[in-house]
Structure formats: structure tokens, C-alpha cells
Design a protein around this nucleic acid. Structure first.
Lengths: 148, 148
DNA sequence: CTCGGTGCAAATGCTTTGCAATGTC
DNA sequence: GACATTGCAAAGCATTTGCACCGAG
């Protein structure tokens, strides 16, 4: 299997799980692959609708589930009610630092975190799948704006 | 200030922020302090209602916000839509490992994680507040039950 | 006395579901 | 042709809000 092409990867995943290959699913994958940073389901739906697509919200949600299941995207909840998504395919594993004041989300990489997570999984007899680290703090700009 | 008594701590917090001291708030704190492990807002509300309390859902949500703000409880989102809470007051800082299959949540302590989070905050010029690490995997029982 | 807090019920907002029509296998 | 998937609208569910009343400061 070609692991550099998300379409091929997704096709393979769908077939392996006896899901059907539909144009809507690939139209959504295509749009997702052009998203920068984080996005939510409705954002994606509206982007597609504005671009003239006929896909429904239900299909967007359904497909995001499949894309999450196979690891092409990751789903996060940053202490909010809505789910945010991000492309994982071909991306380096990273973590997030969230500003409590303005809500900005930045990324950072620390290989040690995953190593520790794997150690912890092992010692607790869990089959490791993935790990999510969120750091909450106040960004430099918000610290400077305290008086404002 | 006495830092071993949650009621005193909460009173102090409320006064400092010019919030009122109401019996409902302390009734909720009392119930929370008797909760083991994780609980959600509605669970807490129903527990109180069954025990004959007259507090409303709105007040439970309102008070959980205040308890979270002052750090007596922590609010988590384990990839679900509802928020789960846990007592922080007097508890050691820990992380969570969640079974993707049965949803079980276990805790573990690794002091290194917070140290790295502080390092990362510093290097990104964030004022550190706290960190949340979730590890997702499959627990031993679920691994054994694959065929079932 | 003032105005923040409360209870209730209705509203909100994200997500899921029911159902008939469609299109993949 | 069977049945998974779709679009649409309605339902679901956790949480928030509006409003009249109450009670803490």
C-alpha cells in the first residue's frame, strides 16, 4: 500500500472494513487535505457548501468519523463542547498548548512525551494507541495585555 | 488560610471574587467531596435530588464552574460530549489512561510529564497553568476478549 | 434595599437519527 | 437486487439562558 497518498490509504481502509467507496467521502477527504490547522465539522461543511458542494452535514460527520478511525485526521476536545479536527496524515506527532485567555492553540513537539506514554501503557498492561497532551497557560500577548 | 479544609478554601475564593456565600454552593461542595473518582454534572444533580435536595441543574452547573475555577475540582473531556469532573483538592496531580474498547479510565502518576510541560511553556513564552495528558489504548481485559 | 443567585422551563448548539431515495457492490 | 449511504429535517443530549422570585450582604 502506498502510504504517501491519503486517497489510496482511505480507499484501502474502506475496503478492508467493507465500507463503500462513495464520491462524497472522497470529496470530503479532498477538502480536509486542504485545511490548514484545526477545523470543526460545521466549518468544513460550510466551506464545502460555499464551494458549491451538495454534501449534507450528516455525511460530513459520518465521514469525519471514518477519517478519525483510520488515523487520517485526529479529533480533539480542547475543553469545549465542539470537536476540533486536524490532519494527521503525513504529519509529525505533536502536542498542543492552549491560551486560557484568548483561546489560541499552538503546537510543539516533544518526543519524550510519547515515550513516557508508551512506558505507562506497558506498565498498566494497555495496548498503546495514542496520546494527547494539552498544556493550558497564558500566552505572551495576553500576559502583556493584563491591564487592558 | 487553612488549605486542608475545602469549605474554608471555597469560602475564601468566593469572598475574594465577590461571589455570594449561599447554602446551595456548600451543599454541592459537600456532595462533591463525597464523590469517588469521576462524575458528571447530571450524575451529581441526580445524586443530590435522590438524597432529597432541592438544588436545580442550573445551580449545579454554575457551582461546578466556580469549583473548577478555584481548582477544587478538575474538568475533563475524554473525547466525549459531556464533561467529567474529579476532585483535585488535596489530590496528587495525575494523568489518565482510557480504554478505547470499554471506556474504563485509570490513573497514573508521572512527575516528568509536568516538568516537560513547564519546559515547553517556558520556551513558548506561556505562563504555565496546568497540563492534561490522556493516553488511549486497549486494556488487558479487552485485549483478552477480542474474540468474544 | 440592592442586586447576585436560584429554580424552572425553554432555548441553544453540536451531533445523531429516522426515513425515503439513491447508488455501490 | 440488496443494502449501505445519502440528504433532509427532526430529535437528542449536555449545557446555558431568560425571567420572576428570593435572600445574602
Amino acid at each position: 500500500m502506498n502510504t504517501t497518498d491519503p486517497k489510496e490509504f482511505f480507499t484501502h481502509y474502506l475496503k478492508r472494513n467493507k465500507y463503500r467507496i462513495t464520491p462524497e467521502r472522497f470529496e470530503i477527504l479532498e477538502t480536509v487535505m486542504h485545511c490548514d490547522g484545526h477545523f470543526d465539522a460545521d466549518e468544513l461543511y460550510l466551506r464545502m457548501k460555499n464551494a458549491g458542494s451538495k454534501v449534507s452535514r450528516a455525511t460530513v460527520y459520518n465521514t469525519l468519523d471514518k477519517l478519525t478511525e483510520c488515523g487520517i485526521v485526529a479529533r480533539y476536545r480542547f475543553g469545549e463542547r465542539l470537536a476540533r479536527y486536524e490532519i494527521m496524515f503525513g504529519n509529525e506527532h505533536h502536542h498542543h498548548i492552549i491560551c486560557r485567555s484568548c483561546g489560541k492553540i499552538e503546537e510543539f513537539v516533544d518526543k519524550r512525551v510519547e515515550r513516557f506514554a508508551r512506558e505507562a501503557s506497558l506498565s498498566m498492561h494497555y495496548g498503546f494507541e495514542n496520546t494527547v497532551l494539552h498544556i493550558y497557560g497564558v500566552c505572551r500577548e495576553c500576559q502583556l495585555n493584563v491591564g487592558a
